[in-house]
Computed example of a mutant assay.
Amino acid sequence: MPRLCNSFRAVLHLRTVLICWFVVLLFTHALALSPAISSEYPRWQWPTHQGAQVLRNFDKPAQKWNSGHRGVDLAADDATVRSPAAGKVVFAGKVVDRTVITIEHEDGRRSSFEPVAQPLKVGTAVKAGEKIAEIDPAISHCSQLCIHWGVREGTGKSAEYLNPLLFLGVEDPSVLLPIGEDFAA
Rank of each mutant, 00 (worst) to 15 (best):
M1Y: 09
S7G: 12
A10V: 07
L12M: 10
L12K: 04
H13A: 15
H13T: 13
T16I: 08
T16C: 11
T16L: 13
L18F: 08
I19M: 08
W21C: 15
F22T: 15
F22H: 12
V24R: 09
T28Y: 13
S34A: 15
A36W: 11
A36H: 13
A36D: 14
S38T: 14
S39D: 14
E40C: 15
W44F: 14
Q45F: 08
P47F: 04
T48Y: 03
T48C: 02
H49V: 11
G51P: 08
Q53P: 05
Q53V: 13
V54A: 04
L55R: 06
L55Y: 05
R56E: 11
R56H: 13
D59Q: 15
D59W: 11
P61R: 12
A62W: 12
A62P: 11
S67Y: 14
G68H: 09
H69A: 07
H69K: 07
A75F: 02
A76V: 01
A76Y: 00
D77P: 02
D78A: 09
T80S: 08
V81L: 03
P84W: 02
P84G: 04
A86L: 04
V89L: 03
V89P: 01
V90G: 06
G93P: 06
V95Q: 11
V95H: 06
V96G: 04
T99Q: 10
T102Y: 05
I103G: 03
E104T: 09
H105C: 09
G108R: 10
S112R: 06
F113M: 06
F113V: 01
P115M: 04
Q118I: 02
P119T: 03
V122P: 02
V122K: 12
G123C: 04
T124H: 08
A125L: 11
V126W: 01
K127A: 14
A128S: 10
E130N: 04
E130F: 06
A133Q: 00
I139S: 00
I139G: 00
Q144L: 07
C146V: 00
I147G: 00
W149F: 01
G150W: 01
V151M: 05
R152L: 13
E153T: 05
G154N: 05
K157S: 12
A159W: 02
E160Y: 09
L162E: 05
P164T: 07
F167H: 05
F167A: 03
E171Q: 14
D172M: 13
S174P: 10
V175S: 10
V175W: 09
L177D: 08
P178S: 10
G180I: 08
E181G: 15
D182Y: 12
A184N: 14
